[in-house]
C-alpha cells in the first residue's frame, strides 16, 4: 500500500487539522491511515497477528494525533508510530513462540528416549535456544519457519534462510567450538 503525492499532501493537511482539534478531519484521516497501517502490519507480521497489531497501532496513532507537529511529514510520522507498535507486537509474539517452541521440543524428546539421551537432548535444546536468542528476530523467524515447515515460496525466503543459517552457524561456532 503506497500513497501517491496527492494523497500524501491531503493526509498532511488533514492530520494537521486533526492535531489542531478539527474533528471533521477525523474520518478522512482514518480512511487514509487504516489501509496503510494494515498493509504495514501485513508486511512484517504473520497473518494471525496482523489485524490485532494493525488495530493497536491505529489506536495508538490516534491517541497521539494531537501531538502531531505540522512541520513533520505526516506519512513518516504515522509509519514511525505504527512500526513501533508492530515491532512491540512482534517482540511479544517472539518471546511467546520461542518459549513454547522449546518446551514442545523438550516434551517430545522427553517422552521418547532414555534418561541419558533425554539429558543430552535437553542440553542440546537449551544450547540451540541460547544461540537462537543471540540472532536477529528476522533470522530466528526464518529458521523457525524452516524448522516448522512453514517456509514461504520464493527466492526472498530462500536467501533469508541462507543468511540465517550462516549466522546461526557462526554464532554456534562462537559459543560451542
Amino acid at each position: 500500500m503506497t500513497l501517491d503525492s496527492h494523497a500524501r499532501a491531503e493526509l498532511q493537511r488533514e492530520l494537521t487539522r486533526l492535531a489542531d482539534g478539527d474533528r471533521q478531519a477525523f474520518e478522512p484521516v482514518f480512511a487514509r491511515l487504516w489501509p496503510v497501517v494494515h498493509a504495514l502490519a501485513g508486511r512484517y507480521l504473520p497473518a494471525i497477528d496482523v489485524d490485532d497489531a494493525a488495530q493497536t497501532a491505529l489506536l495508538k496513532l490516534f491517541e497521539r494525533a494531537a501531538e502531531f507537529d505540522p512541520e513533520r511529514d505526516a506519512v513518516a510520522w504515522a509509519i514511525g508510530i505504527a512500526m513501533w507498535e508492530i515491532r512491540t507486537v512482534r517482540r511479544r509474539a517472539w518471546r511467546r513462540r520461542d518459549t513454547s517452541g522449546l518446551d514442545e521440543a523438550a516434551d517430545l524428546l522427553l517422552n521418547t528416549v532414555s534418561p541419558e539421551e533425554r539429558a543430552i537432548a535437553a542440553n542440546l535444546a537449551a544450547a540451540i535456544g541460547q544461540t537462537l536468542a543471540t540472532l536477529r528476530p528476522e533470522d530466528r523467524d526464518a529458521l523457525l519457519r524452516y524448522a516448522r515447515d512453514e517456509r514461504t515460496a520464493g527466492a526472498g525466503f530462500r536467501k533469508r534462510l541462507q543468511r540465517a543459517h550462516a549466522r546461526m552457524r557462526a554464532a554456534w561456532r562462537l559459543r560451542h567450538e
Binding site: L18, G21, F26, E27, F30, W34, Q55, L58, L59, K60, F62, E63, R64, A65, A66, E67
Partner: peptide, 16 residues
Amino acid sequence: LLTAARHAYERGRVKK
C-alpha cells in the same frame, strides 16, 4: 474500530 479510534483521539487530547 472507528469508535475506538475516536475515543483514543479524545483521550490523547485530554492528556495533552
